[in-house]
Design a protein around this nucleic acid. Structure first.
Lengths: 388, 388
DNA sequence: TTGATCGTTCAATCAGTTTGAGTTAATCCC
DNA sequence: GGGATTAACTCAAACTGATTGAACGATCAA
């Protein structure tokens, strides 16, 4: 699952593959470009770009978008990604439900769906996902032949560790190799990751992190997750468990960060005073009416958040920290404006291009869309060649 | 300094360069190998490897090491790195001194030296370093033509930030672009980094982290630093300031981690009771006689260390955490055996191949040798092609 | 209208890898 | 002891993909 092997050599074939991806990524970043312009950006000859563009157009991944006259000379034919040129399937497996989304090449959701689960053993889950996948393919004509892969989001931690069941965990999945299981079931290349990582990559593709290659994403799921992007790529850790920021111990009060700053913590807090807050809409409503108990929780959560951010900033030196996940926009915005960021931090820089803390994508489907974004990211950015 | 630009395309020339580095790296990892064996490891044809080896031998980077008969077939001619085939110059700039070391291709120090500084403005420092460099070249015949580059270790943080002088900082360096300054002065390619990162890379080249590609290195300098290696490469952060673990706030007691766990903290502690502990040898002696005050400090430092490790483990999921820097071996070993590691951690895994916490290189010169190691690492591992 | 300029295309060339046949040297097994 | 087998290496030819250079077309400026 994680490339551990020594770096492979490169040859003409791998070279071409790499360059194809580089061209796609460049066009994605700029929206629309001409051949020569791409060549300059990637240090390739115009001719090489021309060959690649011909190939990509044949494959239906690019479309022509008229000509652009800029100054003298022959107006350059512009190319853009063909939204219908490729599709990515995103899946989020939760203890009590499965979410699915189909994204087109432009990153737009073509279909989203959720199914409640009565049982969450691997067999049942795989069956549900297979049927969701076939529904999605039926909805979007031509998608089947153009599937790029599937991204799967599952709650970590992966592999055997000392962390024992959170109660609502997917216990029967502990010894399952999710990657091969799903790639066989769907007959697609598969990427498995956790919710925070997926959300972070989604932000890079379409959200606040476009063009930023070092940032951190704090994700509100059931717990608190952290997606780390360095040099444009996710930091997954040795076993895919990096970013478990919720588990780190807190100064005083709380047992750990998660117990002060997470959906679960908020729910417990509201339960203690007899209120319900399981749903994002309910929370949004409570916030709108400035519910006292919610505000109390927010006050202590804001402290915890400031602490979390100080850790992340000092350890990663990110260009920006993005807040997102299964929370209402309004609450995330509240965090962004009300969190006291430390002056004593390497991130406190007067010349910064980006806000130190900002809101990213939010809502129930964030991680699911992110799962599909993992796949798009892979096809749009060149990476080290792997074995054939 | 930090590759931020979009990924460049690749072509035949860059391909060859990449493969040369891959071959060198492979031989470095295995010590000695035959052509076909290398081809298999890198997914290259024997012929391609043969061409590259011919080239590298011509350049004096490789030497033949006899033949190895293993089972049937023609015995394979073995190749190894030529220690005298390349040299790296390492420099550590401190407020009160400059350290320098010359390493050969095998990572062995050929020369080490230190010079006390009366002034530490850029001009004086560069002058000192130039003369150290010329001394080194005079010591080792043939090194001049085979210099691979220079690594520079300087105290961070780099760039304008909210963190103001530690008192003994290099204030006059705040707005200096150290990279171009040194590369012009020495006429060498230069890598600038902080002490923890350099030490971490040294560990990967010759120390405890050989063959490990995800690990963390806790470095005892004046303060406390963290070098993070992910996928075999350093995580530098957006501005090269990643890993400032000493700055993160501590639960209760201390102001931050550094004030409980660092050389400076220990020195202050000993000063308060009228003892001296500036020198590594003094500390080693105090530890040997189980000095009560030192032991007191160690007790609280061990707690702080456990906390630091829990943060690092949960955020990075490293294969191992390595302890090193300007401390006596015995004290580092004490930390390794006496630190209580949390069971509730993603790193607490029964099937682990490596100890969760171990000692790495220690001593006064750790960071300086690491600086040179940065250069060796660059020449031994293929990386994304950069502009010509 | 004319010249300059820039993007495109085509054909030739170049660098580097792969492929396949052939050579050499060691072990295996009868 | 001797043929069969196996493995490492070399040589030459084929192949792949990028680069180079010339020709062409479209547009703008004078």
């Amino acid at each position: 699952m994680f490339q551990r092997a020594s770096q492979k050599g490169s040859n003409a074939e791998r070279s071409r593959h790499r360059n194809r991806q580089a061209v796609l990524g460049q066009i994605h970043r700029s929206g629309t470009m001409g051949r020569a312009e791409i060549g300059r950006a990637l240090s390739l000859s115009t001719q090489a770009v021309s060959n690649i563009i011909a190939e990509l157009s044949d494959d239906g991944l690019l479309v022509e978008r008229g000509q652009l006259t800029s100054g003298r000379g022959l107006p350059a034919r512009q190319y853009a990604l063909n939204p219908k040129g490729g599709y990515a399937f995103g899946i989020e497996v939760r203890p009590d439900a499965v979410f699915a989304a189909l994204l087109n090449m432009a990153g737009e959701p073509v279909m989203t769906k959720r199914v409640a689960l009565k049982k969450n053993d691997p067999k049942t889950v795989v069956f549900q996902i297979k049927s969701l996948y076939h529904e999605a393919l039926a909805d979007e004509a031509g998608a089947k032949a153009r599937m790029l892969g599937a991204g799967i989001v599952m709650p970590g931690p992966f592999g055997p560790t000392g962390i024992k069941g959170h109660g609502t965990d997917l216990d029967e999945w502990r010894d399952v190799d999710a990657n091969t299981l799903f790639s066989r079931a769907l007959a697609l290349p598969v990427e498995v990751s956790n919710d925070a990582n997926a959300a972070a990559m989604a932000e890079r593709l379409n959200g606040a992190a476009q063009g930023i290659s070092n940032y951190a994403y704090l994700y509100f799921g059931a717990g608190l997750g952290l997606g780390l992007v360095s040099g444009g790529n996710l930091i997954q850790g040795a076993f895919g468990n990096a970013g478990e920021i919720g588990h780190i111990p807190m100064p005083a009060k709380a047992r750990n960060l998660e117990s002060a700053l997470s959906r679960l913590s908020l729910q417990r807090h509201l339960q203690n005073v007899g209120k319900k807050g399981e749903d994002i809409d309910t929370l949004a409503a409570l916030f709108a009416e400035k519910d006292k108990d919610l505000m109390n929780w927010l006050a202590s959560a804001t402290d915890a958040l400031a602490y979390a951010i100080s850790i992340v900033e000092n350890l990663f030196d990110p260009e920006t920290v993005i807040l997102g996940g299964a929370m209402p926009d309004a609450i995330l915005d509240h965090f962004v404006t009300n969190t006291a960021l430390a002056d004593q931090s390497v991130s406190h820089r007067p010349d910064s291009m980006h806000p130190r803390l900002q809101r990213g994508a939010s809502g129930r489907m964030t991680a699911t869309l992110g799962a599909a974004a993992l796949v798009l990211h892979r096809t749009l950015s060149p990476h080290i060649a792997h074995a054939h």
